[in-house]
Computed example of a mutant assay.
Amino acid sequence: MVWADKAIFLTPKTTKHLKSLTDKLVHFTPDPAFTFHQSHLFRRSLTNYDFAITTKKYELSYFEAHLKKEQIIYATQGFDTNLHQPITKFNEKKDGLLFIGHHEKEREMFVQKMIESKIPVSIAGIKWEPFVAKNKENFYLNYLGDGIYGQEYVKAISAFQFSWGSVSKWIPELHTTRTFEIPACGTALITERNEETTSFFTEEEVIFYDSIEEMIDKIKYYQSHPDKLELLTLRELKE
């Protein structure tokens, strides 16, 4: 069996050749392949694969335009059990919330309201520099750079009381890798309430919100009730 991952945009000729060398040719991508990242080579080659695996439920109809339904496999995002593990003890965690991810206008609005509500927020990711410059005098904002990866990513998430599993508004996704990586690192996941996140977790396992106001209220509640926050974190650690 031969796999072609998201980073490889193979030509139809190449995929036909690969298929001749194997019983099964499988394509996998954890990213949006039609609604955001796009490649004409991918679309033209897709019919040469025996199976295609996607983590984007909202793109299933696009895949169905090229393959039979039985050739398309939907899988949720996930985490690496060998990498994403708890590192920091609860009583040693930093106060406040961590977000690792690229800048989006909607995310900026949330972070702005949090720091104005005196909630410490640390962010890392690309395109945040103008926002950081605008708030350079705000004590509650901490910029960790344009990216954190690998073991340092795990250490960063595990070091905080809360971490935000924000889903992108550029695409209609309802969960992301952070949805699973944050709990796996032993930190309280804050995530929007939707049909996918509520299918993975209960109200007793993560911190759901429907609005920025609810998000802020819940953060402040758990900040003033660290015993309950610890129980929430420990419950996640058991998963």
Results as ranks from 00 to 15, higher is better:
N194I: 03
G145I: 06
I212R: 02
E205Q: 13
S158T: 10
S45V: 13
K218I: 10
K6L: 09
K13L: 05
V111G: 06
I115L: 07
L232G: 00
R107I: 07
I123P: 11
R107N: 06
V167T: 13
K13V: 10
E205N: 07
V2L: 12
M109H: 12
T15K: 11
H40I: 06
D217A: 15
E104G: 10
P120N: 07
G147Y: 09
F34W: 13
K24S: 09
G145R: 08
Y149W: 15
L67W: 07
T22E: 01
V167D: 03
K218D: 04
G150Y: 07
P30S: 03
L234C: 08
H27D: 07
I216P: 02
S45E: 04
A159G: 06
R178P: 05
T35S: 15
V26P: 09
A33F: 08
K155V: 05
Q112Y: 10
F90L: 05
Q85C: 07
E214F: 11
L46Q: 03
A4N: 15
H40G: 03
T29L: 04
E59S: 11
F79M: 00
A184M: 11
H17P: 01
S117E: 10
S122F: 13
L232N: 00
A7K: 08
G145T: 06
V132R: 02
F208Y: 01
I87K: 13
L97I: 15
E203W: 03
F36V: 03
F201I: 09
E137G: 04
R235M: 01
G101Q: 07
F79N: 01
E108W: 05
K155P: 08
F36A: 04
L234P: 02
R44D: 15
P130N: 04
E104Y: 14
T29A: 14
Q223S: 10
A156K: 14
K56A: 04
I157T: 10
I126M: 12
T76Y: 12
T35E: 14
V26R: 00
Q151T: 11
L60T: 11
F34A: 14
H84Y: 10
F36Q: 01
E70F: 06
E92T: 15
C185H: 02
F139T: 14
D23A: 09
R107E: 04
K155R: 14
L97M: 13
L21G: 00
K57A: 07
A156M: 12
T22S: 11
M109F: 10
E116G: 09
Q71C: 11
S117H: 00
L237F: 01
Y209C: 09
P130A: 00
E213N: 05
R44Q: 15
F79E: 00
R44W: 06
D50H: 09
I8Q: 15
K24D: 08
I182D: 02
Y49M: 04
T191A: 11
T15H: 08
H225I: 01
